[in-house]
Design a protein around this nucleic acid. Sequence first.
DNA 1: AATGAATTAATTGTGCACAATATTGGTGTG
DNA 2: CACACCAATATTGTGCACAATTAATTCATT
Lengths: 221, 221
Amino acid sequence: MSNDENIYRQMLNAIVEHQLPPGARLPEDRLSEAFGVSRTGIRKVLQRLALEHFVIIEKNKGAQVNRPSEAEALEVLDSRILIEPQLIPALLDHWNTEHSERFRIMVTEEKRAEEANQLADSIQLTARFHYELAKLSGNQVLASFVEQLCYRSSLILAAYGTRGSVGCECGDHSQLLDILDQGRKDEAKTWMSHHLKHIKSSLILESKPEENIDFQRLFGR
Amino acid sequence: MSNDENIYRQMLNAIVEHQLPPGARLPEDRLSEAFGVSRTGIRKVLQRLALEHFVIIEKNKGAQVNRPSEAEALEVLDSRILIEPQLIPALLDHWNTEHSERFRIMVTEEKRAEEANQLADSIQLTARFHYELAKLSGNQVLASFVEQLCYRSSLILAAYGTRGSVGCECGDHSQLLDILDQGRKDEAKTWMSHHLKHIKSSLILESKPEENIDFQRLFGR
DNA sequence: AATGAATTAATTGTGCACAATATTGGTGTG
DNA sequence: CACACCAATATTGTGCACAATTAATTCATT
């Protein structure tokens, strides 16, 4: 694996697992020291993470882990609600027992991670479940978009999620597999839709402190 | 406007307008010379273009304009078919005469550009029409994804499009505006779907030269 | 003690130099 | 003449140094 990709993965993991919480600053010096490469390499990775909305780079102020706005949070979930259910039909065309078994193993791991309270693994596995499912649709363009949305969702749950739940309960995911095994296309679509809407509605909005208070609007004029 | 963004826009324009055709090599030296900045700045732009699939960077071999594979071309169009029609309902919620007028001006410009045989402007305007429409859905996440897909479509049409047509005829776009003005939601959705499927089916596949010719298969054995 | 200016420190932006790698052309040998 | 090997060239990869900017601290003044 290339060195860049390695660093990128490690940082992305740290972000979606909330080891680097939203708002955490990411000074290039420390990172270059930590990874044993020059700032040049770090900057490349940060640029990429910024384009994918995992970090925010402000000119002359450096990078920090993105703190998704409420609007962004809702839009990401809405995007998933619009896309993921629509992938089910194509997915079912390729669905077979091999896939079923593979995903059931994943769900088992999810369950174990959640019971062991290993938040990091739990988050990763939840996102991977949705991404791997999307890949089976056969459309790699959409799949990689779903991948990005899933990881962004992890970040969103860090900011707005109900504590303890990472969004989808594992039981839920095995439910979907049952439906897929029975080839019930429409049911699977609506299940996925409900599942994502459930996550969306579980977000706790308007409770976090505002980052930029609009004093002008509050007192001005 | 920042310098990076400026260079990025210029290069992206050159690519989607086919001034830099698929396969064109992009040596960092020449570009840094042309733009009057150091290779550092150029590399940043190239990295970004690569992440967005407009150029391909191979290790130690540099960047070149992406030549989309047939599979990629179909996947991009399929993605648009899946997303863009679904944006219509939300779009219609905000639709008003101001929007209508703005888009009719755009269509007029499209028509003029096409008649004047200004391929570059024509391509830009066609992509912008779809992107601006997507923005009106209110979901910026999906809109910027659509933007990327539209620009990638331009690149695809460079490789697989029928000569003379850039995909959508302008008459078509004004048709959609008529339907939107009448608030016919379902009709607009199906129109958009048909429109994109028409573009997809107009692609001339398996006719362009392969990027990596398999000489072994072609002559060997 | 509070405020504001000025200095200091920390961090990022940018260009350059050298190392690493791939490609091309040439040379020699069988 | 074919083949392999080697050398030269061109291009990218990476680290470093210095400039530019922002943030923090100090200090002076009221």
